[in-house]
Write a protein that binds this DNA or RNA. Sequence first.
RNA 1: GCCGGAAUGGCGGAAUUGGUAGACGCAGCGGACUCAAAAUCCGCCGACUAAUCAUCGUAAGGGUUCGAGUCCCUUUUCCGGCACCA
Length: 872
Amino acid sequence: MQERYVPQTIEHEAQEYWDRTGAFRVTEDPARPKYYCLSMFPYPSGKLHMGHVRNYTIGDVLTRYYRMRGYNVLQPMGWDAFGLPAENAAMANKVPPAKWTYDNIAYMRKQLQSLGFALDWQREIATCDPTYYKWNQWMFLKMLDKGIAYRKTQVVNWDPIDQTVLANEQVIEGRGWRTGAPVEKREIPGYYLKITQYAEELLEHVQKHLPGWPERVRLMQENWIGKSTGVRFAFPHDIRDASGALIGEGRMWVFTTRADTIMGVTFCAVAPEHPLATHAAAGNPSSRPSSRNASKGGTTEAELALKEKEGLPTGLHVTHPLTGDKIEVWVGNYVLMSYGDGAVMGVPAHDERDFAFAKKYGIPIRQVVGVAGETFSTEAWAEWYADKQRGRCVNSGQLDGLDLQGAVDKVAELLGARGLGEKKTTWRLRDWGISRQRYWGTPIPIIHCDEHGAVPVPEQDLPVVLPQDCVPDGSGNPLNRRADFLNVPCPKCGKPARRETDTMDTFMDSSWYFARYACPDNAATMLDERARYWMPVDQYIGGIEHAILHLLYSRFFTRAMRDEGLLETSEPFTNLLTQGMVLAEMYHYDSPEGRREWINPADVTVERDAKGRPLSARRVSDGQAVVADGIGTMSKSKNNGVDPQALIEQYGADTARFFIIFTSPPTQSLEWSDEGVDGSFRFLRRVWNFGAAFAQQCGKADGAAPDAAGPDAAAQAVRHEIHTILKQANYDVQRQQFNTVASGTMKILNALEKLPAGASPVKEEGLSILLRLLSPITPHLCHHLWRELGFGEDVLAAAWPEPDPAALEQDEIEYVVQISGKTRGNVRAPKSADREALQALALASPQIQKYVAGQPVRKVVVVPGRLINLVV
RNA sequence: GCCGGAAUGGCGGAAUUGGUAGACGCAGCGGACUCAAAAUCCGCCGACUAAUCAUCGUAAGGGUUCGAGUCCCUUUUCCGGCACCA
């Protein structure tokens, strides 16, 4: 066996072997239990980043582990290939998104292969391939048929200079990223998917039927769906538009979960797009610019929440449905047309936002809820004003004295009697808008005809293929200038018509790719019986940042496919592992010209004091002092990324994999450390060296039973230690805490190195345990040593190691002795010792007697096998 | 702002149900080997202390318990999501 550990050579050989033997190609096998292990597919941004390496290493460890456990394991890979970055790259480099994307895919595929992942590459998919997105279109048409997809207006960010729609990401502090112009809100038509139709089912299942998901993700989804019961009611009015017709049939509808405060309504607020608001703006020229003002700024919930609440009186009044009072209507910049009815009631006394709004505009504040022992003041807001538990109605006529539920019931009854309202369940969850005014996405299969309106493309004409050669330039969707794409005959009448140029949200692509991996080659149907074999995914792995949107859309889409008869399962992912982010140190220095430059941690040296604490940092190249900014996510802007490629080339894939697994538990963030990588490499080299010494001293493994070690107490102690570590490691694998599995392999090597040189059954057994335990993490090294040392043909085919119960047995147990809960010493006791014997042993120990010092023992607590606590 | 997390030595982390805090590794210090260096191997390594004992110590403050990193309450800081980034 070769003396030096040269990862590049053995990794290449192992990958060649797996490739040649088709080791990771899988087919449906009813005889074995199936295990579908899936990592979120990457966006082909150019090259792999550490987050990818971490994600896929975790998946690969699971894949190889379950395979050795005897499962039929599928682990596929593909590309989330549509999206905005390709258009940005096109603008920067004048390269069509298609070429950029496919080049990136080719490069990143090579990178993935060099990491030795147990992937079935025959199942690779790219969402920008017409054979894939054809089925987005097909499913969309099915949804249109069923009314699950529909068309309505949506609010978008509009850049007035580029005349284009901006993504939220392209809005920086309320301005367009390229033009710097203040962004406006605009209403345009778009397609929606009725995810709300599944709201009840999505909520119930996330609450009761997803035990394999982290509690926090389930909670986030639950809050996102946001079921709330309340009252929807109307303020009657007599406001007519220019033609004399009653606006909204004389009803202004609102929804509230706090109907108990209805007597405290002192104003109402409507969205700027609400019919009453547009009516007021039309009738009153002076309010027009202000109304436009309300439409400024971004569309995100976070922006609205942080924005100062601003309003504008419309001069219009509606009637309070119970008191008959006139209530003034305001336009509020914080009210969204797409939420409920686009109007809210304002109760300043019991809603913090309304309170601030009323103070600002001098609107009356009327207390209608009281809490015993508290005094209300209109001067300052207090938490208890909104207390749902302790509050009782006051100043509210016949509601007085009622609690929240009682008052809501009563109000619903009163309103119902007048035909002005009723109890209603509402959802925070909104329908999913899928139209994007962008080029690089799945074309929405619709044709617009002057006569027949929006006509679906007939099924046999699918896919509507996206032209491959467009180059976006920032001036909107280039499809609008492609005559060969735009001009089509209407499917209904054959007259000239125009193709829809909006494309689909890329979340559409990622909402079902997991099922397509089962049958990527099927040109005739979206999914077939193979999908029913592999689905659901047994283990899904990906970033916590997808906890809500991607996972919720996928759960919805899976149900839509189920209802289409394509799948039998409702939930796509049985178990979910949300991996943490990858972080690195950040350093910068400010140049004399005031320019801030971020320095890559690899180019920085740190001076330390005698205890290893950092003192100062300088740039290696010129000794320039730099400022440490702590740690943060690896990003281009902070220049603190570590390129996986350089790492693999220097240390090999196994070192990269081992470091990533060893350094943090999968669900926590991982902090990069070049020294840590060095340490991982040193460990793998020690494993190699141990194997080389074994080959030299012992030759080939002969499978001798460790019992043959006989009464050699030292060897048996090592064996006990190894099997104890193995037991813990198996527990850790099962609970997916792989970092301690990695440290377990280090402990086993430490134990093995205590054994004397030369062959021994304990050594051979220990090494075979070590190699198998380590093989999912560093498959190349273990593949090589397993064969080379004669343990077998292929470590993939080896059985997962189990501890020998006999080796775990111990005659004597070391007990911790505490006096009144403070640890004061240890005693060794036979494992058969009972409570009294343990107490006597503890009291007899000189180190313990010192602390007891003749005091009476009031109580004795014994934890079997661990601890004796004497309370004095 | 709302929802969801996290915090343990100089650093990453360990401690399964409340039971010896700091496993394993990194960095640091000392030594062996060497002409020397690298590599490797051995020892030390929370604070306080000359050292031992003792005491203190798991973001901060309080509580429950024979016993709290772990359970409860309050606070602080950092991170993820907020519907057109993926």
